[in-house]
Design a protein around this nucleic acid. Structure first.
Length: 284
DNA sequence: CTCGATCCCTGGACGC
DNA sequence: TGCGTCCAGGGATCGA
């Protein structure tokens, strides 16, 4: 699933080829994930892509003014199975390709998304800023002090806090579990009960996990591919995510799964001690 | 504020 | 081999 490292990898790949390219034409397939498909279809041709930005799990293609229109951005969220590919037009498009932007260098920018949980919208700059205003801090641009303050200000469970894009932007289910395992913190721990040492461990774990995942170009489980259609490699370094019933890499205990914040959460019951309320009541 | 439930959607896993 | 069922999850939304 595309989370911060995957979206960052896509952004870097797009940044290598898109800036300066003019959009010549638009072809649309299914459009139920596009906010205003007519605006995308009519508003993109003639525009020049000036830059590619990532904010949390969102991608923004910044576009020049065109046809008397104001500068704008194409806001894209990959959802769970979205792919944004910049490939030679001659290369066959994959299944579920729903948006194709024909570019002036013989490439096409293609959006494919099997489940169509993604989003796309062509918006003016101000509208994009407004749309993204509620997003929290970039995890890799945040100092330890600010991180602690943000986490401690929440009363929900730490896993829910990590998934909350208003607190930190870009962390999803995979990297939340991986970070918590590395920090040896149970996903159901109330965030406000975390001690100084635990917060510091979590801060470092998140940074390490995200940075290493970016280096390995993301985790390719599910449909994730980068902008050139290549898989990532970080899934090889996953320590708990998706490993229910297998042995903990640190202590050999059996990795468990529980639902926290409505999401599957994998953790080691020995390394990541449960808070009182989440423990099974003692017998007798 | 925070929770859980529900919905969107399709492919893959699994049971028979 | 095929069919039905369940599950995966990011985010919006709604009611408690």
């Amino acid at each position: 699933m595309p989370e911060l490292p995957e979206v960052e990898t896509v952004a870097r790949g797009l940044r290598a080829v898109l800036p300066g390219r003019r959009i010549l034409g638009v072809r649309l397939g299914k459009t139920d994930f596009i906010e205003d498909a007519r605006a995308v279809e009519g508003g993109l041709p003639g525009r020049v892509i000036e830059g590619v930005e990532r904010r949390g799990k969102f991608l923004i293609l910044w576009l020049s003014a065109a046809n008397g229109a104001t500068p704008a951005g194409l806001l894209v969220h990959l959802g769970m199975t979205g792919q944004l590919l910049a490939l030679p037009a001659a290369q066959p498009a994959g299944k579920h390709t729903h948006v194709v932007l024909r570019l002036d260098d013989g490439r096409e920018l293609r959006y494919a998304d099997a489940r169509r949980f993604g989003e796309m919208a062509l918006l003016e700059r101000q509208a994009i800023e407004k749309r993204l205003a509620a997003l929290g801090a970039e995890p890799l641009e945040l100092g330890l002090e600010a991180f602690c303050a943000r986490i401690l200000s929440r009363r929900s469970r730490i896993k829910a806090v990590l998934l909350d894009q208003r607190v930190l932007r870009g962390i999803g289910n995979m990297y939340a579990d991986e970070s918590l395992w590395r920090a040896r913190i149970h996903p159901a721990r109330p965030a406000s009960t975390l001690g100084r040492k635990e917060l510091a461990r979590l801060y470092r774990a998140i940074r390490r996990v995200l940075q290493r995942a970016i280096e390995l170009r993301g985790s390719s489980i599910s449909d994730y591919l980068d902008a050139e259609g290549r898989a990532g490699e970080f899934q090889r370094l996953h320590r708990v995510y998706g490993r229910g019933g297998k042995r903990c890499f640190r202590c050999q205990a059996e990795v468990r799964r529980m639902i926290v914040a409505g999401r599957s959460s994998y953790y080691c019951p020995r390394c990541q001690k449960a808070p009182r309320a989440a423990r099974r009541p003692a017998r007798g």
